[in-house]
Every structure is written in C-alpha cells, then in structure tokens.
Design a protein around this nucleic acid. Sequence first.
DNA 1: CGCTACAACTCCTCAGACAAGCTGACAACT
DNA 2: AGTTGTCAGCTTGTCTGAGGAGTTGTAGCG
Lengths: 222, 222
Amino acid sequence: MIRRHPLAEQAAEELLRRIGSGEWALGGKLPGETTLAAELGVGRSTIREAVRELAGRRVLESRQGAGVFVIAHQAAEDWDKVLRRADITDVLEGRLAIETEAARLAASRRTPADLKNFRYTLSDRKRASEKSPDDWYVEADLAFHRAIVTAAHNAVLTELFDTFVPRIRRAMIDMLKLDEQHRHRHDQAAHEAIADAIRARDPDLAATRSREHLSAVRSSLI
Amino acid sequence: MIRRHPLAEQAAEELLRRIGSGEWALGGKLPGETTLAAELGVGRSTIREAVRELAGRRVLESRQGAGVFVIAHQAAEDWDKVLRRADITDVLEGRLAIETEAARLAASRRTPADLKNFRYTLSDRKRASEKSPDDWYVEADLAFHRAIVTAAHNAVLTELFDTFVPRIRRAMIDMLKLDEQHRHRHDQAAHEAIADAIRARDPDLAATRSREHLSAVRSSLI
DNA sequence: CGCTACAACTCCTCAGACAAGCTGACAACT
DNA sequence: AGTTGTCAGCTTGTCTGAGGAGTTGTAGCG
C-alpha cells in the first residue's frame, strides 16, 4: 500500500533535513514564510503547516513579528516508532533489563500497599488465565508486571515500562493467536514466585526469578 | 516575560484536552474542519494548524478524503523532559538497568571489532583521566560505556543509552566540579575489569562488575 | 448477489487580504 | 550625551473563498 505524503508533510521533512544538516544554527532564524514558500515552490499556508508540525515536535518555535527559530537540531526520538520497528527480541531484552532491575529494587523498597497491589493483580491474572479472552489475560498479566515496576519507586523505570507496554501488548496478543494457551498455568507459579521474593525482601532472588521468567518468554518467541 | 499563545496553539491545547477526556475514542474520527472551526469559534486554517501540530506530536492523523483520526490518547512522553526533571538517582538506576543487561549480552555477542573498540576507548579514557579538562574526560568515559552497550548488538538498548547520555553527561560534569578527581585512577581498573569479563565471554561476571561499578557511581552522589 | 457509477463528503492547496507584533532607525526631548 | 517617542518595514497570525484530490456509502444495473 503506497502512501503519498501531503505537500505540507514533505515540506516538513525537507526543513527537518536542512535543520539536521546544520543549514541554520541552533537558535538561528529561518527565512521568512514567503521566502521559504517561494524556495520550496509551495504556498505560504503549506509552509505554515510544515512549521507548525515541526513546532509540535519541538524542533522549531515561531514568534509573531520576529520569525521562526530552531530550538533543536533533530526531532526527539519517537520511542513509539523506534519500538514498532525494532525486533521484538530486542524489545524484550530491553524489557528484561528494566524489569529485572525493578524487581531487585522493589525487594528493598516495597511497601504494604505494593504487596496488596501484588495480591490483587495476581488473583486477577489467575482468573483471567482460566476463562477469559486473550485481551483480558494480556491486560491482567501486564497489570501485575506494572505493579512490580511501580514497587521499585523509580519514576524513570516506571515511565520506561509504560513506553514499552503498547509494543509488548501487541506482541503478546499475536503470540497467543499462534500458540494455544498451554503455558498459562505454569506461568502463574512463576509470577507468584517473583512476588514472594519481593515480599521476602530478597533482591538477588527477585532479580533472578524475574530474569528467568522473562528469558523464558523471550525464548518461546524464537 | 509574558507569552501569549496564538489561537492555533490554544486550539491544539483544547483538542488535546478533549481527546484526553475521551470525547473521541482511540481510532475515532473527529468532526470536519468546518464544524470544528465553528465550534471553537476560529477560522478553518487555524484548526488545520492545530491539527497539524497534534499530528507532529503523533496524537492525530489526517487522511485526505476520510477525516482526522485519534491515534493516541495523549502526547507521547518527551523523554528529554522526563529525564531533566527526574531525580538523578532515578536516572542512574535506569542507566544501571540498561548497562548491566548490555554488559551481560555483550559477553555473549561481542565481535573482534567490539574488542578493538574497547581497547581504543579505554586508552583514550586513561589518557583523559590523567591530564585533560573535565569535559574530555567525561566524553571519553561515556564513549567507553557506549562501546559496551554497542557490543550488546541490541538497537533498543543502544537507543535507550543514547537517550540517557545528555542527562548523565551533565550530572557527571556537575559532580566533577564539586569533587576533585580523586577517583579516576581507581575507576580505570574497574572499567578494564568490565572489558575483561566481556572479552572472556563471562556474562554473569560482566553483569556483576558493571553493576558494582555503577552502584559505586550512584553511591558517590548521595 | 456482485459490480459499477456517482454523489457527497472529507482533507489539501493556493491566493489574497488584513491584523498583530517585533525591530531598528531616527527625531525629539531632557 | 543619554533617554524617550515615533514610525516604517519587516515578521508571523488569522480569515475567507475557490478549486483539486481522495474516500466512502449508496443507488442502480446486470
């Protein structure tokens, strides 16, 4: 399926390319809209939309009466796109890194509220694994894993996990379609073992069990 | 300094607010440009610019002839901003998670080219630790750590590391200003030990040494 | 039932007009 | 000399009307 880009998008790409190539310095001013329009051979409103798009991506900033200025030399990495394009094994290894460390930290920092959260999400997950559609099961599974990460009380790790979730969710659903749910029952035990280690305040054990569980998930995909 | 927002930006904020409130479902279609323009009391081109800005932020997507659709319920997190605001200890724990796993994977996957890279960056780092300004030393240190992550041959981990680098760089420079470089010499040994473990294809040892080194860095900051 | 043609809708692009804001130059004043 | 006021000429901001191009649902036909 071909996908033709509107002129405004093409103009935005072209501007981004020139910005990246250093044609205009950081903080520098672009030519006026009318000039750019003539230069790229499009109308002024098209240029305006291109600039507005790059403003949305925090690359340009326009100030009325003054001009359009460069505030970043390249667009911030769009993690959603990066993760969509990356191999699922790469994504899972990233997840493994995050979650294993989170499990380790959680073992030191977990609060009573965190433990209660484990109980809830674990029992949800058990119910969902027995008699629910795939979607629910996946959500319940992710909810438990998120509970672990939350218990690490580290905003960066939580944010990282949330960034990974959409990609992981899709991969899990795809996987369940191919592969009948022959491993849910066994999984439940592995999940409870991780929670137990965190409850027992054993960082190394929590990390090891988390690593083993996620390695198994990863292996089942290859 | 006061800053008045243009109508188009205000319109984008309003749309984002409504999208976040669930007024339109994920994948749902927004009303037409003319309808929205009348509804918000602005011109059509203003709505177009607002939509274009949200398209730049990957919240909306417009398809000619079909309409404007919601592709995310909220703007993707701007990682640069997240990391700037996060506690440096949280950032370092994230880095530890990434780099420790990377060291483990590197021990299995490192190529001769990776080893050569270690040699170069390590000797650079040694020179810089002896008689260079702080900036150079920080760059050399980061270059070696990046070499480790690269040797894991995982695009996601590499991208994650690169996302963290600017924040880490600033923290290191700040740290060196306060604290005279009394630990460079000792550090060099720790770095070479990590490289040795990867060279010896010992995943657990590489991970452990990486963890211990980064834990020490983290502790020195508290 | 399946296919085609079409009408109604959508976004896309352009041009022109005017409003609003910034900047630098220069005159007027203290 | 230094400060203040004014203004012309630039910039972006907004609106409108026109026509082009793509999509979608549907009425009509075989």
